[in-house]
Design a protein around this nucleic acid. Sequence first.
DNA 1: ATGGCTCTTATTGTCAACAATCAACGATGA
DNA 2: TCATCGTTGATTGTTGACAATAAGAGCCAT
Lengths: 228, 228
Amino acid sequence: MKSGQELRPIVQESTPSLAAAQLRRHIAEGTLPPGAQLVEADIARELGVSRGPIREAIQRLTQEGLLVSIRNRGFFVSEFDEGDIRDIYEARTAVEKAAASILADGDPSRAGAELLGCVDRMDEARSAGDQVAISEADIAFHERLVAMAASPRLSKMHATLLTETRMCLNRLRGRYEDESVRVAEHRGIAEAIRDGKRDLVMDRLDAHKDDALVRLFPTHEASSTAAS
Amino acid sequence: MKSGQELRPIVQESTPSLAAAQLRRHIAEGTLPPGAQLVEADIARELGVSRGPIREAIQRLTQEGLLVSIRNRGFFVSEFDEGDIRDIYEARTAVEKAAASILADGDPSRAGAELLGCVDRMDEARSAGDQVAISEADIAFHERLVAMAASPRLSKMHATLLTETRMCLNRLRGRYEDESVRVAEHRGIAEAIRDGKRDLVMDRLDAHKDDALVRLFPTHEASSTAAS
DNA sequence: ATGGCTCTTATTGTCAACAATCAACGATGA
DNA sequence: TCATCGTTGATTGTTGACAATAAGAGCCAT
């Protein structure tokens, strides 16, 4: 039975995984806005299973930091204050810098090429004026960047940070007066990676973070991140 | 009712948390060695609770990557191969570099002083020839380093990486021919932080990682991490 | 002896019922 | 009017029982 495609081991997705994935998507997309309460019994009824598996799914999201648990009271979608958002961007940049560093030791030109592909898609979305698609491509860029480093732990940590970023993006929507700068920033990072310019990559990733934070909190200036 | 001591809010630690903490400790200390199976029912009986809370505790450890789950078969303490261990050290260094960078923007001399205190304790343990105490102090050093950066997300990610490191340390035990180099490495990092020498800190953290990996896998040389 | 079949056993996965807890509401008394 | 205290409703926390699943033992036919 020679199929054109390599037949990969089937993954019997468990009920809690499925439930967690659904909830995670709703949280990322804002259908479940920050502050919203999740009631085990309700979700269980909607999904047609008992509370057990749902409870497990909710526990996972809680550990990921997407929900906060108040004992005997309930689970609520996390609300991020300014400190949290700064923390998210700080941590995410840390992970991405590490990933970029690994890429620099590997095959920078191949990595750069793939990332430039993401940038192109982002630019197309910009031309089409599709805000949502731009954000999708934005996320995809960062996801690919870390995925290509092939580090399970960095990827895992990054996945959580990306969901949190998505939540923040719902708030940032429309903050880019000119979306072309957004595209340009990403292109700059991709090109620096392609050219193997390690230090430049680091600087641009930091700049990317600082820019986002300035846009989110216009009153403050960005934290100093200049080298000593 | 004016008591001499400020009365702080009581924290009702939940059953799953307690159970998870115990299991985590046993895994870190090697009482539950890699490959060992954890049976929900057995643990539940030993701790005098039902399977529910235990199941929740086990789920947490699974999500932390300390256990692997095989559906309908059981949960087993993760076994790390060379790739995993390199990944752990890579990720941990990434987090610590980010933390050090934050410290450099804050109060480097205070941070350096506290870390030098950890180093002193490590040195005392070395003088006393207490292997276990040295490792404790080693872990404590890295824990403090990240904790002082006051980033919830970095700290959380780091906590998991530290337990994994502990597991690796059980294997590395006795690999330092001369423990004084171990102390010296940490002192070097602490001093660089104290002096606010950002780039030097980064280099020394990378070197610390490379040294550990060389000790663990003497055959290979360390990955190149020189700046471009 | 060996390949395949069934049966057993150990373990997780799921469920529904019950207990514990907390916030909000409303009654009570000064 | 206001503070206090019990009551109530909603939600999570816990439990024991049962279902589903997979590995391995034993048996049988080849």
